[in-house]
């Protein structure tokens, strides 16, 4: 996978989320991603950025336009925080499981909405979630 464009957005407060979503929207429009795929990407991003704010208080997101061939480009978002980490990743990926007050749909829901989903977490150190959505597919 080759990165064509890269930007780091720091998330510290709720209003940063609006700015972040608008940025992702701009990137999606830049590569002419379709409306449905864009909506799915933005929704997944919204879930993950909220998780970051709730559980880690702050973090950063690396936004990249990536490509694997002349035909396939997409957007990769990597959410990095130094929060408490996830104790049981299998459980966290189950629909309806939450340690907070939410519906427990954030992580498994986000995974269903994107093409590539990669979650790494070390308890006490932090969590890194990377999602990729292709322009077509």
């Amino acid at each position: 996978m080759i990165t064509l464009n890269k930007e780091i957005i720091v998330i510290k407060k709720e209003q940063d989320v609006v700015f972040f979503r608008n940025r992702v929207n701009e990137y999606a429009e830049k590569i002419k991603m379709g409306l449905l795929n864009k909506t799915k990407l933005l929704t997944a991003a919204s879930e993950l950025v909220r998780n970051m704010l709730i559980y880690a208080k702050e973090g950063k997101v690396i936004c990249e336009i990536v490509t694997i061939s002349a035909l396939q480009t997409g957007i990769r978002l990597t959410f990095i925080d130094n929060g408490p980490g996830i104790a049981d990743i299998d459980k966290a990926m189950t629909d309806g499981y939450t340690t907070g007050k939410s519906l427990g749909l954030g992580l498994p829901g986000a995974k269903r909405l994107v093409n590539i989903f990669d979650l790494k977490s070390v308890k006490g150190k932090g969590t890194t979630v990377s999602i990729t959505k292709w322009k077509n597919g």
Partner: peptide
Amino acid sequence: MQPAVAITLIELGL
């Protein structure tokens, strides 16, 4: 509700 939002909501599980 926009159609894309409806599709996304169902895939999200809501």
